[in-house]
């Protein structure tokens, strides 16, 4: 991978998840449900979680409309977090946040991002960071408050 490819925001994985988002559905009787909204671009995401009594994410899904970045990010979030504990989800949010803000050295740090590393070039697109973080902010709010609406602004 050369420098310009690494900088590329619209990688195949992102375009593919945009076209076929995973876990794109509603969950009946979720333990957590949050609406994430970015008023600047009108992106809307509804995130649903079903967490069991051991604080393990049994099921996670989303619905909504948005750009390729916000949609693929939400899709990858659900794939990554299914089966994880709440603690692990929080840890991943912190790592993903560092990745988006360009604070993470993927080579050096012992991160757990896996496929989420596809967003590594986004810090060069400041206006798009909120697109990638929308679903994650919704998740953070869900873990904190259970059910409500969260805005990026």
């Amino acid at each position: 991978m050369n420098a310009s490819e690494r900088d590329e925001l619209y990688q195949e994985l992102i375009l593919e998840h945009n076209k076929k988002p995973r876990n794109y559905r509603k969950i009946d009787n979720p333990s957590h449900a949050v609406e994430g909204y970015n008023p600047i671009c009108g992106d809307h995401i509804y995130l649903y979680l079903k967490m069991d009594e051991n604080k393990i994410i049994e099921d996670i899904a989303f619905e909504g409309s948005g750009c390729a970045i916000s949609k693929s990010s939400a899709s990858l979030l659900t794939m990554t977090l299914k089966g994880k504990t709440e603690q692990e989800a929080r840890q991943l949010f912190a790592e993903f946040h560092d990745l988006l803000t360009g604070k993470m050295d993927l080579q050096k740090s012992g991160h757990h991002l896996g496929k989420l590393a596809v967003f590594s070039g986004i810090w060069q697109y400041p206006s798009r960071i909120k697109c990638a973080s929308l679903a994650w902010h919704a998740l953070e709010s869900a873990l904190k408050d259970g059910k409500k609406q969260v805005s990026t602004e």
Binding site: L9, C41, G66, C67, S127
Partner: peptide, 8 residues
């Protein structure tokens, strides 16, 4: 295609 993707 979302306008923000087009714009970028």
């Amino acid at each position: 295609i979302h306008p923000h993707d087009i714009g970028t």
